[in-house]
């Protein structure tokens, strides 16, 4: 597992959003785990808690009525700042928590053990928690069991993520990408925020496959996805939506900015030396189509189709270039 990343809250929140679990209904695997915590440790309360920007939200909870509380009064906001479990034997004797409304009022938490839920990238997105209304020392054996159950929570969350990921490039599958884009469209409509889409198609990919075999083509796809991922913002999403075609979703990004970003990716790919098996180096280029979201686009299919027009122009005008749809001259005429 990756090293814990503590001081990049934006990236941590992006990792949490990628899990796509906030505000989803109760689900059996997590319910079973909090039941086990309650039974095995004999605590009145147990939760699978996710720490969002300003709140802690419970994916599963036993013995607590609330579905969420402000983050500022939570124990878990402290738990996610460390590698090891956070253990509070007596909250009234701990100045961080003594005045918390969760301690002085309902549900009267007096002791707490929280094991961080860490993603494979190293972000603590929440904690598996055991809570008691009495002071309590959690034994090493109990914390070991909590640790195992926290790992199983992470397995479940990770499995859902895998289902959204292309196994060769680890980018989103077409279906996973479309789901992300649909959510972004809903956000654009609701809050009037900008967003843009870029389609990237590797130039002459067939001849790469013909010359170096499918193994060579796979190496190119994998490395291209890696260099794009390394240069994306945490809030961006990338999906493999066709054989050698990728899509990049850029929230909070208008047309001009998205075109500039695509140009940056294009230049990075052009400058990169793709290393094939046996150490052979290969230069590859890609063409990009870019389209900003506009309210007349009914759904992701329409948005992708608009972006595809730009990609088609980039290909037709000689490849290894970026084009915007509608073209800047058409935009200004409109």
């Amino acid at each position: 597992m990756s090293e814990l990343v503590i001081d990049d809250e934006d990236a941590r929140l992006a990792a949490l959003r990628r899990l796509d679990v906030l505000d989803t209904p109760a689900e059996e695997p997590f319910e079973k785990i909090v039941n086990l915590v309650q039974t095995v440790l004999g605590v009145p309360m147990a939760t699978v808690t996710l720490v969002d920007q300003d709140r802690q939200w419970f994916k599963a909870h036993r013995g607590l009525d609330a579905q969420e509380t402000p983050r500022s009064i939570s124990f878990c906001t402290h738990a996610i700042r460390q590698r090891e479990p956070l253990v509070v034997p007596d909250a009234l004797a701990d100045e961080r928590f003594a005045a918390s409304p969760l301690v002085t009022g309902e549900p009267f938490i007096r002791s707490y053990a929280g094991v961080p839920l860490r993603t494979p990238e190293g972000y603590n997105v929440g904690a598996l928690c055991a809570l008691d209304t009495k002071p309590r020392r959690f034994s090493a054996a109990e914390l070991a069991i909590m640790g195992n159950l926290a790992s199983i929570v992470c397995d479940e969350l990770q499995l859902r993520l895998i289902a959204q990921r292309d196994h060769l490039t680890h980018t989103l599958t077409r279906r996973g990408f479309v789901e992300q884009a649909e959510k972004e469209i809903a956000k654009c409509r609701r809050y009037g925020r900008p967003a843009s889409l870029a389609l990237l198609d590797i130039d002459h990919f067939k001849s790469i496959n013909d010359t170096y075999g499918h193994g060579g083509g796979d190496v190119v796809l994998r490395q291209l996805a890696e260099i794009c991922a390394a240069n994306m913002r945490p809030s961006d999403a990338m999906g493999r939506i066709g054989g050698e075609e990728f899509a990049l979703l850029m929230p909070e990004t208008g047309a001009a900015e998205a075109l500039a970003a695509a140009e940056r990716f294009r230049a990075i790919i052009e400058a990169h030396e793709f290393e094939l098996e046996g150490g052979r180096l290969l230069k590859v280029t890609a063409s990009f189509g870019v389209a900003a979201y506009t309210p007349d686009l009914a759904d992701t299919t329409a948005w992708l189709a608009q972006t595809d027009l730009a990609l088609y122009r980039a290909k037709r005008e000689g490849r290894n270039r970026c084009r915007l749809e509608p073209a800047p001259e058409e935009r200004s005429a409109a």
């Binding site: 079973k32 289902a163 996973g176 066709g242």
Partner: peptide, 25 residues
Amino acid sequence: RDLVGSYQAELTAAMRVVVQGQDHV
């Protein structure tokens, strides 16, 4: 047994999605 059961159900769903994704690509 309980934990295996729920993971298995999730795994089956994940495999279905992955296979559909591969077919599409």
